[in-house]
Design a protein around this nucleic acid. Structure first.
Lengths: 160, 160
DNA sequence: CGGAATGGCTGGCAAAATGCCGGTCGTGGA
DNA sequence: TCCACGACCGGCATTTTGCCAGCCATTCCG
């Protein structure tokens, strides 16, 4: 399953950078025929290496300018409690992602909301009311940087 | 810039779910003409709402089966130290993303490595050697779930 | 050692999608 | 009322996709 050769790695790298480039462009950059490239991509998808393609959206445009990380401790530490909390947290619209952790905290929630008032409301209305939560700690995010850098922006007059 | 109407929101939602679907498919689901949909997507890109498209890759296929969150405290808390650490952390291949935080911790690093030995090596070789680091705490990630479906946050500009 | 089977790559072709352009409709202002 | 303006639509040339048969290197096996 995790058999990924050099060509596969290059395909993955290019698709991580820009998932919307055409198969022809992909093949051109890799120096292989488009049909070869297409079959490689399909094989990677079939094997579960490529799990999907997602657009990267500016949070501000969606009224989610304030982001925070919330460390959560739950009790008791049973599978039922953990699974239930994980699913319900994931279902909240403010929650971008849920981490289940080993160590001092049991969960880390990455949340995005409109402003600080909404963050406060989220903590009080969504978290404090849950009985299984033994405690939580919130850190507002000043900046966030991904290593998968924003790709080339498709420009209508782009020359190459 | 954050002028996003109902149609734009639907486009964003669909592209977050699957960024590789064709413009025709997108238009069909929205009930508009393909040319209309294409112009909308380009306008969203031009305005910076859509920042890019990225493939979602299974970490196991890239020898990144072990992921962890590392809380870091640096001293002194100056802009120079923070910016330097942020940039250098982001340049490390093991680091997926860097959060600059308000609160008890100054940074949170999301790292992905091959196994626990490599995690240990990362902590010792990359972090412990840095003088500005006052302390750090590592939490191994058992599970992570992303939110790729949601997005109707209660917002004052959403007219419905 | 030789022959055949296997897997991957290539090029080309029909079908589909993209990108562009002019036309149409509905709205708001003078 | 009339006009300007923006958004949407439909169609057409060009590009891209998806598929297929053939080629070549490697490997397996007699």
């Amino acid at each position: 399953m995790p058999v990924v050769d050099e060509l596969d790695s290059e395909i993955i790298r290019l698709l991580q950078t820009d998932a919307r480039q055409s198969n022809r462009e992909l093949a051109r950059r890799l120096g292989v025929a488009p049909s070869t490239c297409l079959e490689r991509v399909r094989a990677l998808t079939r094997r579960g290496v490529i799990r999907g393609y997602h657009a990267d959206i500016a949070p501000a445009a969606l009224n989610r300018s304030v982001q925070a990380l919330v460390s959560v401790q739950v009790r008791p530490l049973s599978r039922a409690v953990i699974d239930t909390f994980k699913d319900s947290a994931n279902a909240l619209p403010e929650v971008l992602s849920v981490f289940v952790l080993a160590g001092g905290d049991d969960f880390l929630l990455h949340v995005a909301v409109q402003d600080l008032d909404h963050l406060h409301a989220f903590l009080l209305d969504r978290l404090s009311k849950r009985r299984e939560i033994a405690g939580f700690r919130t850190s507002v995010i000043f900046q966030q940087e991904h290593d998968t850098a924003p790709s080339r922006l498709p420009s209508p007059t782009s020359a190459e």
